[in-house]
Design a protein around this nucleic acid. Structure first.
Length: 192
DNA sequence: TATGAGATCAACT
DNA sequence: GTTGATCTCATAC
């Protein structure tokens, strides 16, 4: 288990620095989680971001200070987990899309109802279900329980590509992933 | 392998 | 009334 805990200054940087730096970091919620292998960056100047059109009750946390969790309901069904970045008011966040399950495998399997370890957390909705993330986590600080975030050890090979499941600004290469990981929601096409 | 429907909520037109 | 930062299951090729 990595020892260096990520604190709020880690998130007080550009989303485009924080997002790739999160690849390989360890995320636990109530002791359940694993290594982050895929994220996407969203900034309020980005038409695909929820904050693009201004503050609403749903996205209010995005307009607050960095280092907090923004959770929203997707397609009426799923929960999706984001980390707020930069400075208060910048309304930028990183969507956590996939992780490699390491801790609490039994709990994750029970919550997800599937035995296949590569299907536990490979996608934002699946990840939230496996970690039992709900609207109740919206606005919670990332450096306090139930969240635990630990810095990666070493430098993983990072792949970049276009984001998934969006129609606006779909060509921006703001998806980051761990090269070659089996736990990505979708493989990266472009090498480098 | 690939498309299609259904689930079901918040924000937008 | 429609759309979307999704996933699952069903049916077709």
């Amino acid at each position: 288990m990595p020892a260096v805990r990520l604190r709020r200054p880690f998130f007080a940087r550009s989303v485009h620095e924080v997002a790739p730096d999160l690849i390989g970091a360890t995320l636990l919620v109530d002791g359940v989680g694993g290594r982050i292998v895929e994220v996407e960056a969203y900034h309020h100047t980005d038409p695909a971001a929820h904050s693009y059109r201004g503050l609403t009750p749903r996205n209010a946390v995005m307009f607050g200070p960095p280092g907090f969790a923004y959770v929203y309901r997707s397609y009426g069904i799923h929960w999706c987990l984001n980390f707020v970045c930069e400075i208060e008011g910048s309304a930028s966040a990183v969507l956590i899309r996939a992780l490699e399950p390491l801790e609490g495998l039994a709990k994750m399997r029970r919550r997800r109802g599937v035995p296949d370890v590569t299907l536990l957390c490979s996608g934002p909705g699946r990840l939230a279900q496996a970690l039992a993330v709900t609207i109740g986590h919206n606005g919670l600080a990332l450096d306090r329980l139930p969240f635990e975030l630990y810095a990666r050890e070493g430098e993983p090979e990072i792949a970049a590509g276009v984001r998934i499941g969006i129609t606006k600004a779909a060509d921006l290469p703001w998806r980051y992933g761990m090269k070659g990981s089996k736990f990505l929601s979708k493989p990266f096409r472009d090498a480098s």
